[in-house]
Design a binder for these strands. Structure first.
Lengths: 168, 168
DNA sequence: TATTTTAGTCAACGTGATTGACCAAACCGT
DNA sequence: ACGGTTTGGTCAATCACGTTGACTAAAATA
């Protein structure tokens, strides 16, 4: 229990329950529940090592493959950071590197069969989770929520630098 | 530009635009825009070093102060992690440590005047940002969005381990 | 009083990000 | 065709944030 300090009067702090504080917390909570539920289910389906970050990377690699530099640009991080993340996903057998036959500098990053499996399962699970929201809130409310978020956020961003962005 | 690999056919990947994929992205985007706008404005108002993480810590410390251990429990991280974060905020003059007169083991963590200023400005800015959403969407839609998120997320969570949670 | 619990710190380590430096391959202008 | 510039990948150093384990000192308890 907090022991109030007798020497100084308590300063006036803003009410933690004010609406301005709650809105971002609710958005983060929504994101986290979805991602947590996804990865709990993915772990059950044979992908326990997949982290939230990894899912976004797999999706960014996609069907055509990319390079570390392109990946970094797409995800908003440096090419070195993207390269390191690719290294880890290669070690986990989600990605593979192959030489680009057209450009000896480039190393194409591609999904392995295991990575493709994880991506497909993620898609199915995400759809199921959204259906759960629809069941709880109604299709209209979910659609409204999505529309509204699209309205107030800059179009189409997809940045992966969450850890660094959030912390420092 | 992506150079397609001629040796293997492109694997079938799920459509990145499917609704299940978009929902979490929209929630994250909403959270990020709010926090980004907040910190852009905070930087303008004399708090350029404040990071998203820091704001949550300041709020958790609040009027009464805490200890590193309590902070860790409240934010869902270890006491050591909480202590390190406090160290950084002490170095930035947002927090101070004082000895607890009732318990020589405890070191109370309190807001400095500078920290209190940052917290107050955050509250005002957050309320303004929410008002901007109300102006764009209507008060009813924003309230519906908040209600819906409350419905589908576990009550009242407030965990600070975002970097580690997201990455690994 | 002796033992256990609790608060805080130190150390070692893992992960993700950064910047700067560097090499080799590709591109391009003369 | 050659030589300078751009580009892709990697290495190294540094920082932020998290973890667990070990340790000290003070408080609580039996």
């Amino acid at each position: 229990m907090a022991t109030p300090d007798p020497q100084t009067p308590e300063p006036q702090t803003p009410d933690p329950q004010r609406p301005g504080f709650l809105l971002p917390l609710l958005l983060l909570a929504g994101f986290r529940t979805l991602i947590d539920d996804l990865h709990a289910e993915l772990a059950r389906q044979g992908h326990p090592e997949l982290r939230p970050l990894h899912g976004f990377v797999l999706q960014a690699v996609g069907a055509t493959g990319t390079t570390a530099t392109e990946l970094g640009q797409q995800l908003g991080v440096s090419k070195q950071a993207a390269g390191k993340t690719v290294d880890r996903l290669v070690a986990l057998d989600y990605l593979e590197r192959v030489d680009d036959p057209h450009d000896a500098r480039r190393k194409l990053v591609r999904l392995t069969p295991h990575g493709l499996d994880g991506l497909h399962r993620s898609a199915v699970i995400f759809d199921e989770l959204r259906q759960r929201w629809v069941a709880a809130l109604g299709a209209e409310r979910v659609a409204a929520l999505e529309d509204d978020l699209r309205t107030v956020t800059p179009a189409n961003w997809f940045r992966l630098d969450v850890p660094g962005w959030f912390a420092s």
